[in-house]
Simulated scan of single mutants.
Amino acid sequence: MNELHIHFEFFHSGRGNWNWTSLMGPDKEILLQYFPVSEFISGSRGIDIENLWREFYRLYKILRKSSHTDEEILEFEKDAKNWVRTFCRPTIGQMNSAAATPGLYRKDDVTPYMHVFAMHIPYFLRRLKEKGLSLRLFSTCSVEKKNHEQVKLFFGGTTMGGGKKTKPVVYDILVFENRQIFYLINDIPNEITCNNINILDNG
């Protein structure tokens, strides 16, 4: 990391928990482009993961272009879908055999962001091209900030690292909001008012 001129470290955040340095956009780009993943993950798996990083960076730079041709959008669509397929590639051949090609990640590890990246971004590029626009003119930073603040408010802290619960964070939020909607529709009070009754002893 020092060779890439990026400050990154793990540190104790209290109560025995580990935390890590948050990286800004430019630092993330440098990592995707130059970090030697294969030096830390041995074998073909490390090489494949490093190639995933490099390919994602290449696709990201395509999205950042000020304009796209129809051919570029079509090529991006094919490459983005192939990138997701490679990400969740299963083990090829007999497990634990010398001839087997190890898989990378599970299909369950594919995030909604990756789905949008491969399945919806090409559509956005085509519609924006019709209007002489491009994705680089837009930002979702405010949406991401709102999401972060909502999670932080709901749980009293961030869920960096996935939290400690087995179910996704969004599941708990949706359950909470669904209950609120149910109470509202059925006119059910969502709080209890306590009344104290004082009984005077007249005897």
Rank of each mutant, 00 (worst) to 15 (best):
V170K: 06
H115E: 13
L133E: 07
H120M: 10
V169M: 03
E144K: 08
I121Y: 01
M119D: 15
K165I: 00
M160R: 15
R136H: 11
K146H: 12
E130Y: 08
V151F: 01
G162E: 03
I121M: 09
T159Y: 12
D172R: 06
K131P: 01
K165V: 02
T111Y: 01
I173N: 03
K164R: 13
C141T: 09
F138K: 04
K131V: 02
L137Y: 05
K152H: 15
K145Q: 05
Y171H: 14
R127E: 14
K131A: 09
Q150Y: 05
V170G: 00
G162V: 03
N147G: 12
L137T: 03
Q150F: 09
G132H: 04
H148T: 10
M119F: 15
L135I: 08
K164V: 11
M160I: 13
G161I: 09
Y113D: 15
K165N: 09
C141N: 12
K165W: 01
V170T: 05
K165R: 14
V170Q: 10
A118F: 02
V175G: 00
Y171I: 02
E149M: 15
F154M: 14
E149W: 10
V175D: 11
P122Q: 06
G162A: 05
I121C: 07
R126A: 03
P168T: 00
V151H: 06
Y123H: 14
